[in-house]
Design a protein around this nucleic acid. Structure first.
Lengths: 225, 225
DNA sequence: CGACCTATCAAACGTATGTTTGAAACAGAC
DNA sequence: GTCTGTTTCAAACATACGTTTGATAGGTCG
């Protein structure tokens, strides 16, 4: 066949291993042996390990950013000029992620973990690649968030967005492990959708908290709203 | 001198480099050349690279966990049998961290980033080490959190704690980079204390959000609070 | 002084990494 | 069948890593 499935087998294996162990801790030999392809195949098809990392992200991110654009379009036409509510904005993103066609049942959580790693591990080339390729939907989401939280100052909004990102990336990145723990400790089953349904209200409440500087640290009793 | 300053020079250099680049991405040769000591000194004084990582954490974490125990003692005597409020619990932790004596002006942010990396990078040995050595203050903090949020079901509390952890670890793990971005974009200087002062209210509000299951995803308009 | 323990150093060791090579296998077109 | 371009493969390459070695100094105590 002209384009064998070698490329996809490599991408599948790489995606899983990167998510499990991080980028530096995953060697090409691990990937190629898991994918059952020759070691040289990675450099032949992708050129380098870094390029493979980019390809793993691109395979998910390109269709996802298209889905996201549609969701944002829908949201804006539905709002008809009015700024969307914070919940609407967050759900537009969440539903796009949850509804993406997945290669397997863990597709979302694997990719969430990869996104978290991309942010956390200081891989300069990756950040540059993501900024270059996918800045548009990101900027648009930021703009919607801004419209959804007009009461916040730019600085407050900036930090709270980081907090949201953190809670999301972190939770999703380890949601498999967390689900297992919950299953064992409390005997409760949990789907990714349910986690999202718990996460979004948490984020919305955090974003809309009282002005942070009103509540200061001290030995006295401070209470929230 | 009996105990030269080689040990501390190594610890200082390692701490900084680990925080900047992560554990796997930092080689012993980088550390020893930054510390201006011989390569073999690390294995001589610490035994292995992993042991050096543990030592870096222990140097900060041991005095910190003592400070934390005191803060929790203070809090419990101040509450006099009553369960503490969520804000009190969160601030007990935050103030202990902020008030720790620091080796240099970036001491806290460096160490926050290290803690974030410890959680994020899947270094099995590190997690085992931390669980073994510092499980007590961690468990105590969890117990206080439970008392501070009696209104939450066990499952809700479980997930929301994960969300808090995520927002904190993630923000702290990249706080230097984030501060730089903010500095460039908005021309605002930010201290770790200010980040904490913004984070705590965010977390408290999220923890005390409405029952998550009341707000469901749909195409319709949903609003919070 | 000489014995002894500790600390430092340059050099080497074995291993694992990402990448490259050159030949072999395979495909489709003529 | 033969040619042509693509894909696979085993092997090697150069480099970087964590760790070990054995020699050399420096200090302390009898």
């Amino acid at each position: 066949m002209a384009q064998s499935d070698t490329v996809d087998r490599i991408l599948d294996a790489a995606e899983e291993l990167f998510a499990e162990r991080g980028f530096s801790e995953t060697s090409l030999r691990m990937i190629t042996s898991k994918a059952k392809v020759n070691l040289a195949a990675v450099n032949y098809h992708f050129g380098s390990k870094n390029a493979l990392i980019h390809a793993v992200f691109a395979r998910f991110l390109t269709p996802f950013s298209a889905t996201l654009e549609n969701a944002f379009n829908d949201l804006e036409t539905r709002c008809d000029g009015q700024p969307p509510t914070l919940n609407q904005t967050l759900w537009a993103l969440t539903e796009s992620a949850v509804r993406m066609p997945q290669r397997n049942e863990n597709g979302i959580s694997i990719f969430m973990r990869l996104l978290g790693l991309a942010y956390t591990q200081s891989q300069g080339h990756l950040r540059k690649f993501l900024e270059q390729e996918y800045s548009q939907p990101f900027s648009r989401f930021m703009r919607l968030l801004k419209e959804s939280t007009p009461q916040l100052s730019a600085v407050d909004r900036y930090w709270r967005i980081q907090f949201m990102l953190g809670a999301t990336a972190f939770t999703m990145s380890s949601s498999d492990a967390l689900r297992d723990i919950l299953q064992n400790k409390l005997g409760v089953e949990t789907t990714v959708q349910e986690i999202a349904a718990r996460l979004v209200p948490f984020l919305a409440a955090g974003m809309q908290a009282e002005d942070p500087m009103l509540i200061m640290p001290s030995a006295g009793k401070t209470s929230v709203a």
